[in-house]
Simulated assay, not measured.
Amino acid sequence: MATSATLMLHLTGRCNLECRHCYMDGSPRRREALPFDWVAQALRAAPGLGIGTLFLTGGEPLLYARFADVARVAAEVAGLATTVCTNATVVRRRDAALLARLGFDAHVSIDGMPGHHDLFRARDGAFRKAERGIGLLLAAGVPVTIVTTISRGNVEQFEQIAGWALAAGARRLLVQPLLDLGRGMAIGDQQLSGEQLNRLILQTSDFGNRSAGRIAASIIGGSKRFLLAHPCAAYVCNGGGCHRGVSAEIKKVVVREDGTVLPEATNLDHRYALGNVADGSLAELVQRYFPAGYAAFDRLCRSTYEQCVPDWPAPIVPWDQLLALHSRSVLPAPVGAAPERGCGGGGAGKAAAAPIWIKPGSAA
């Protein structure tokens, strides 16, 4: 079986920072955490479900009490490519050594030069602590990707951020236009204008070209042109005229810190969930979803696509943002019901992921 699907585990809601744009609302006050035993069985079931990519995130995943145990289980799963998403401020030498030994990658978020980053992260000294953690990861041999959220407040710092990532030794720079999700909704006025987004796209491309292969640089998202030509990239494939010919699919499974298991989008309304970790194993939840809940989710995806994508004013479509916002107003209903109108959200953001899927009936 192909292993091209993605599993994203939000191990904990706890974070040592309280970033202004956090789509997860992570903070030091949160205590939710996934049960280790459930996480372990989900990881071992991954190959049987067609899952080949794993993201360990949070909150801050390194604050999860049994992070090292989770990492070791993941490393034992053949063919599972694992990335740890961290703010790097709490990275210790032993953490870096563990990730290097297990062959993991790291995604580290840096959102501007020191002054802006610390302000955005609501913590003085956050930049320098992250810089130190990145240094430990790189020294241990962990491949590091810098993920930078760009808003109106730091768009003029892009060249500095990119230059810093290159000088630090990162292998890749991912540029995320501010999303209207989580705490980011409180600073929605900081989303980029269309003109700023177009300029950012060009700057990102130019920077990557100038680096002469030393670092890859790209915008997180997909082009509107691509989504119009390939709607199956926007989670709306059910075999009807699709060149991939699948009957139904889930390309990414997201397990939230409270145990809710969601299809595709981290901030999706929980009415569309596969269930909760208390309801059964990951394989069981996936198998139950196709006859019981997939039709409503498919309808949500299709109505969001039809109402939002064709007339979206920017070249980058924030698909996950649109789907999440739309899911709050569109009630799960049988296929064939009249679609509810309206396309919420604005600005730029993450578009659809690459074609990856869990097919109905898959099991560990």
Rank of each mutant, 00 (worst) to 15 (best):
M1N: 14
M1K: 14
R20Q: 05
C22I: 08
P28L: 06
L43T: 03
G48I: 05
L56F: 07
A71L: 10
A81P: 06
T82P: 05
T82Y: 11
T83L: 13
V91L: 10
L98Q: 09
L99N: 02
A106V: 09
F120K: 02
G125N: 10
A130G: 15
L137R: 10
L138W: 09
A139V: 09
A140R: 14
V144D: 03
I146F: 06
I146P: 00
I146N: 02
T148F: 04
Q160C: 11
A162M: 12
G169M: 11
R172G: 04
V175W: 00
L179H: 09
D180A: 11
M185E: 15
A186R: 14
I187K: 04
Q190Y: 10
E195L: 10
Q196F: 07
L200A: 10
D206M: 08
R210L: 10
R210G: 05
S211N: 03
A212W: 01
R214Y: 01
I220S: 11
H230L: 05
P231K: 03
A234C: 13
G239Y: 14
G240A: 15
G240P: 02
H243S: 12
V254N: 07
V255R: 03
N267T: 13
H270Y: 03
V277S: 05
L282Q: 06
Q287W: 04
F290H: 02
A292L: 12
G293S: 00
A295F: 00
A296V: 00
D298W: 07
S303H: 09
P315F: 01
P315Y: 01
L322Q: 07
P332H: 00
P339T: 01
G346C: 13
A348N: 07
A363T: 15
